[in-house]
Design a protein around this nucleic acid. Sequence first.
DNA 1: ACTAAATCTACCATATTAGTAGACTAATTA
DNA 2: TAATTAGTCTACTAATATGGTAGATTTAGT
Lengths: 138, 138
Amino acid sequence: MLPSKAIYGLRALMFLGERYEGSPVLISEIAEKEEIPKKFLEAILLELKNKGYLRAKKGKGGGYWLIKNPKDVFIGDIIRILSGPLAPTSCSSKTAFAPCPECPDVETCKIRLLMEDVRQGIAEILDNESLQNLLERK
Amino acid sequence: MLPSKAIYGLRALMFLGERYEGSPVLISEIAEKEEIPKKFLEAILLELKNKGYLRAKKGKGGGYWLIKNPKDVFIGDIIRILSGPLAPTSCSSKTAFAPCPECPDVETCKIRLLMEDVRQGIAEILDNESLQNLLERK
DNA sequence: ACTAAATCTACCATATTAGTAGACTAATTA
DNA sequence: TAATTAGTCTACTAATATGGTAGATTTAGT
């Protein structure tokens, strides 16, 4: 299951995406409008800033804003940042491969082959969904 | 990430699948050959028995065996039993729908629409993969 | 200097995961 | 019927992840 952190992060990004190229938005405004615990949101936005998606300004008139075009922000990448690899097992991850501790032999593991199919299915959807696509869904 | 429990369970089922229609297999044999903690495996096999996939016999000559044809055992169902719904969020689950606590309004939530696509992608793979298919992979 | 707003450091409670220990029950066989 | 075998049940436990909170600090604008 996707953790709250990722869901909150996506909601916040959507909020900022709708104000793309507008003025800075307060954490507290996003927190209120999206019903996200403010302190938790702080940490999430900071992480997305450190990964290069947002910028922030302190003091009066400050706040957060999106610095990438919503067309160029992919949901798969956001979820990897906020929740880790998309793959269902570490042995089936492309971006963070590691042999699963549960399997005596990674090479011959058939579960891995199946999970690689699943990972590909997930990635195909999430890596092709831009923030813009998401905002335009209905 | 898929919990160890589900991975162990799948490995054990594969082991029993290869001996389909043979004599009962000891928990301790599966535990040794598949390198699964025995006590943990006990609980997993019991669960699969209670769901109708396995039968067990106590005493000498006892053990566990698969009672469904491997063609009729679907990995999606096994994972649902051992690890819960396949969907990435509760709001996108078909088998266990519940509104996510993170979203003010499920109806209009665009994240849900995306996650429903993901859930469908996952389910399409796992619900069409039988234990037999899995055993025949290479 | 004052105030607004992000940032940093350090916690904390709860739930989940991944087990373990040990008594108990049921079936077989000598 | 007694001993043995093997699954079942109840009750813990340790470690980790999740979902936060509190409060001091830094930076920027007026």
